[in-house]
């Protein structure tokens, strides 16, 4: 249990998707103009990461990993399919995004109209594929750990985009040098936020 809390906190603050790895920067920069839309996108990311990371965990451990196919027959003990992981992960993500979109549309039209346009965009958000690849690289021990990692990364991304959106709403009233206006200042603010987040480094429970 302690272990899970540790992974959760670490993936939110220390290994923050945006500030430590720059994943999902494209949508982060493009959508963070107002807090409202950022909240929608952030929630969608938490949601999709929370689903795809565990699924890819199962795929990795029962299909791709070396010796993972022994549950079919012991003869497959030295089959190593890890080279297929990119294609399988991205296929899972693309299809899960489609599926999630359809399910939400059916059961919660309000949530759907809030997330609506952002869901399809998420398939090409680097933080989603990044979550699965980090899960593979760090070799988590159980499904619970992988799920917690996925959710934590999503929450970290969510926090980051809300933060930058709030700052950008304010900065509109400031006198930014003309060549730095818009994109440039956003980069620099993100860098400063990142330095602040570095303060969490070394936190352990």
């Amino acid at each position: 249990m302690e272990n899970l809390v540790d992974i959760f906190v670490k993936s939110i603050f220390v290994d923050n998707m945006i500030f430590a790895y720059f994943l999902g920067m494209c949508s982060y920069l493009a959508v963070s103009k107002t807090v409202k839309t950022s909240t929608g996108l952030g929630l969608a990311v938490v949601f999709v990461l929370g689903i795809t990371v565990p699924i890819n965990y199962l795929i990795h451990n029962y299909i791709l990993k070396e010796g993972a196919l022994t549950w079919i027959s012991p003869a497959y003990a030295d089959v190593d399919l890890t080279f297929l992981s990119f294609i399988l992960f991205i296929a899972v993500i693309a299809s899960m995004v489609q599926l999630v979109e359809m399910v939400i549309e059916k059961f919660s039209p309000t949530l759907y109209s809030n997330l609506g346009i952002f869901l399809p965009l998420i398939a090409v958000n680097c933080s989603i594929l990044g979550g699965s690849l980090f899960m593979q690289e760090r070799a988590y021990n159980s499904l619970a750990e992988a799920t917690v990692f996925g959710l934590g990364s999503g929450v970290g991304w969510f926090l980051a985009i809300i933060g930058i959106a709030a700052i950008r709403e304010k900065i509109r009233y400031s006198n930014v040098p003309a060549p730095l206006r818009g994109l440039g200042i956003t980069f620099i603010i993100t860098g400063l936020m990142g330095i602040a987040f570095m303060g969490f480094m070394g936190i352990k429970f």
Partner: peptide, 25 residues
Amino acid sequence: LPPMALITVGIIIWVQRYRNRKLIE
């Protein structure tokens, strides 16, 4: 550290837009 990459790109954008005025937002 990672944050400096962002700030470096921010500065590159600044220099580029200063030279190339039509890109200013």
